[in-house]
């Protein structure tokens, strides 16, 4: 039995992700770690409109009955929980961030909020960008050192102590990328307003 408060937390954040255009109807994923269990979206469920039966509880390290119903991305989430201190994972498809990921190896924000909170978002790449152990290890390994990373062309993976945190980083990233896009359109010389910003890309 999954606690109603947990369900509400998933439902609200899933709703916000969809409403913010960070996911498609059935895309993206959210999970949390509870002790040695993980709670994750059911395969085929819509994050934007989660029902209580859309959340599956299963073991982190072993397959049990929950596995059959869990999202195909369970492997990535499990790997993240095994290899990092994460207690929550948010995976979504922030559009502008994805567009930027196609032409660079890292995103270094120019706006104040994301500079303050994130500094730099690395971009990793993988041939089969879904569900393979190689991809899971690559993502988990990058999340050892960063709260949020991009998988080129695919989307973001972010971690935190709570689902709130993980969502926060995703939302901040997309906001940062939209601002960067707008700046590119404006196309005027950048006036640096941040001290020691040259160090951000080495974060």
């Amino acid at each position: 039995m999954i606690d109603e408060r947990i369900y509400e937390m998933f439902r609200e954040i899933g709703r916000d992700l969809y409403g913010q255009n960070m996911i498609s109807s059935h895309g993206g994923n959210l999970s949390i770690r509870l002790g040695d269990k993980v709670i994750i979206k059911r395969r085929g469920a819509m994050l934007g409109a989660l029902k209580p039966h859309d959340l599956i509880e299963t073991r982190i390290d072993k397959n049990d009955s929950g596995v059959a119903l869990a999202s195909t991305e369970l492997l990535v989430h499990r790997t993240i929980y095994k290899q990092t201190p994460a207690l929550a994972v948010c995976h979504c498809h922030p559009r502008t961030a994805i567009a930027f990921s196609l032409s660079r190896d890292e995103i270094v924000p120019i706006d104040n909020e994301a500079s303050y909170l994130l500094k730099k978002i690395p971009i990793v790449t993988e041939e089969f960008a879904s569900g393979t152990p190689q991809m899971a290890n690559k993502v988990a390994s990058a999340l050892q050192n960063y709260k949020i990373i991009m998988l080129r062309g695919h989307g973001s993976f972010s971690i935190g102590q709570t689902l709130d945190d993980a969502y926060f980083w995703s939302s901040t990233l997309e906001e940062a990328c939209q601002i960067m896009l707008a700046a590119k359109l404006i196309n005027e010389p950048f006036i640096e307003y941040r001290k020691m910003s040259e160090a951000y890309n080495k974060f």
Binding site: R33, L34, G35, L87, Q161
Partner: peptide, 10 residues
């Protein structure tokens, strides 16, 4: 009660 251990451990 459920899930508290993850936070304590971290």
């Amino acid at each position: 009660i459920q899930g508290k251990s993850s936070y304590v451990i971290l």
